[in-house]
Design a protein around this nucleic acid. Structure first.
Lengths: 218, 218
DNA sequence: ACGTGTGAACCGATTCACAGCA
DNA sequence: TGCTGTGAATCGGTTCACACGT
């Protein structure tokens, strides 16, 4: 995480980026309420984030506020979209069209943020050629060809765990640089490819632990 | 996070618990390969975790290894299942049976770990009474009654964002102590209820950022 | 006067390094 | 000897507190 151009200091955590997404959502609802200017303490009120954290997170990318005043809402939205890179559309490949995969294909949450699943792959003969929404399911054999042709850089793996690692390797070979993995296995790839593992069972186990202890979690 | 009985020191992070899930998965595949004893460095090889981290995580709950030897695989599996609390079955209520909700109903990853969705709620008249798998969709109006009767402590929210907070409040009123929230809003509840927010669009945005920068993420 | 931007202080989590035991 | 268990050292992220600009 060195050499980030826009950053003034070299040090921001991946938590900073997660929170920027959070701020962005909040800012959009604020904008919908026709509020034009907001202070760091007002926006962080309901977000489990301190005002100082908010200001510091933004400070890594520049000073977007006015001292004594606050932040211009619509301007800040633009800036954060810029930082996150969602001011342009991103094409996403989906691998595995079982229940979860199909659900993700129809998930409105992605399109809202310029993230668009443009192709879906499966290995089951009876599925290939079928449509889910307006996306046609493609034979997994054509994965590399299609991804290269469409110049896709990000992919979602929603396959059974047994084949997830294999799929990941194929995706990387096809030029994919970011993978969101829903299969409950830890997949490993080149250092220059980013993987985000979303292990839902593990999240639930986590919950069980804290529920069982009757404990407070942050 | 004070007063944890089994813990020797008072200090383990929620990261520790997440990693215990990870270790558990790995241990199970190791067991499937008929390996009986394993060292901290062998098991952490492919997990992005240091051996010291592994040992320290376990040390919060007791000493399960043999010096000079390593850890007994099946014994450690039992111990971790014990710590996590998944040695008993946990009933889970599902709220919202759209695409994502239905997908979760059929998700095999949960049942493997003693996590069982036993009831599903929706507010759409045409869905109520229908079955998904062997679970009947129940009118949301009966949420509190059913959850209390079945003595359910955990719930999954898979509704549109507009109603998620309202649902969360109802769940808490019904006695739910742990909530996994898939709706892309930040929901707030009593301090004694645990919420795990899974924001998939935000995860993807995160990925976009690091892909765009051509950066390495941990 | 008010709220931002930020170096410094703080705090918690990870890693180190080694004593202790099989 | 080899690997665990753990206090001590380190590292990195969060919070503090205040100078600065409006």
């Amino acid at each position: 995480m060195k050499d980030i151009k826009k950053a003034k200091k070299v040090q921001f955590s991946s938590g900073t980026i997660k929170r920027l997404s959070l701020y962005l959502r909040k800012l959009k609802t604020i904008q919908d309420n026709n509020v034009n200017v907001i202070s760091s303490s007002a926006i962080t009120q309901l977000l489990n984030v301190t005002p100082a954290q908010f200001r510091k997170d933004l400070s890594y990318f520049g000073g977007f506020g006015k001292r004594g005043v606050g932040y211009n809402v619509s301007l800040l939205i633009k800036e954060i979209e810029d930082i996150l890179g969602i001011n342009q559309e991103w094409k996403i490949a989906l691998v595995g069209t079982g229940k979860l995969g199909s659900a993700l294909l129809g998930f409105e949450g992605f399109s809202k943020f310029n993230l668009k699943i443009t192709c879906a792959f499966d290995n089951q003969k009876n599925k290939i050629g079928e449509n889910i929404g307006n996306i046609k399911i493609i034979d997994i054999k054509n994965l590399e060809k299609i991804i290269k042709k469409q110049n896709i850089k990000m992919a979602i793996i929603a396959t059974p765990p047994e084949v997830a690692q294999n799929m990941a390797s194929q995706l990387v070979k096809a030029g994919i640089k970011g993978i969101m993995n829903f299969a409950p296995v830890f997949i490993t790839v080149n250092k220059n490819v980013v993987v985000s593992n979303i292990d839902m069972a593990s999240e639930l186990e986590n919950l069980v632990f804290f529920v069982k202890r009757g404990e407070l979690k942050t």
